[in-house]
Amino acid sequence: MAVLVIADHDNASLKDNTHKTVTAALAISGDVDVLVAGQGVAAVAAEAAKIAGVRKVLVAESADLGKQVAEAVTDTVVALSSGYDAVLIPATSAGKNYAPRIAAKLDVAPISEIIEVVDASTFVRPIYAGNALETVQSSDAKKIITVRATAFKAAGEGGSAAVETVGAAGAMAHTRFVSDEIVKSDRPELSAAKIVVSGGRALGSAEEFQRVIEPLADKLGAAVGASRAAVDAGYAPNDYQVGQTGKVVAPQLYVAIGISGAIQHLAGMKDSKVIVAINKDADAPIFQVADFGLVADYKVAVPELMDELAKVGL
């Protein structure tokens, strides 16, 4: 029994989601290989080889793989699949894009966003925006699974797996990459950050969002998140969205400012260790999940919070 983990990376560096997915894979089998599919990924492969418990790192490179084009990743993985009983994929937007395609090509029922491995064919996954947890058992010989990385601890370093080149799918005939618009930021990545500061509709404008949320995030060394309402209104870019249909985060500290706490938002942050909510409505549902709720206008509370943080040396 062997498991293939598909690495999460941006061609330049390996993402922590990979280490967490390896942990899930090791709960299924001791034979875990990692596939790095991309372009110019030698450094990523070298990082993957250092993950403790990894048997082998496979490298597939092409222009389409460099852009994570679903058809290209699918063809590459399907060609490798005979050697594996399960393929585990971090549930990033790229992973969610190609995992079901791989599954359908192999006539397998995919299992989405697992948060626990019960045994080699039984898994726990959230449904209904996390309001219920389903334990499912797969009867497929091969399993195609996406993994909610926040639910697993990162595998350690210290491995020295061999790196091997494998065949990449040829150029895609019917899909062409046109362009990327990737937001560059010096902040920690949202799904991996220890602290997340999120703003909601209350902020009222993109300028206000930047004026209030960003300095607080800078002070705390935090990533910035947002509610859907804030993203829809253009206060924050789309990939800041936390929730059922955005990113799922589980930081040490989540600070929600001017966010009401709709179930779809809670679905993305309620597994945070500590939740702080600042909202002027004492009845806002966000307070039901907050460890520390401050009923206040953010216009007063956030400057005060900045001052108090400065007093403790932040």
Binding site: P126, S138, S139, K270, Q288
Partner: peptide, 17 residues
């Protein structure tokens, strides 16, 4: 292809303070 063995509520958060 999948069998649902059980569906449970997620652990409740002790919030509200």
């Amino acid at each position: 292809r999948l069998k649902v063995l059980k569906v449970v509520e997620p652990p409740k958060r002790q919030g509200g303070a």
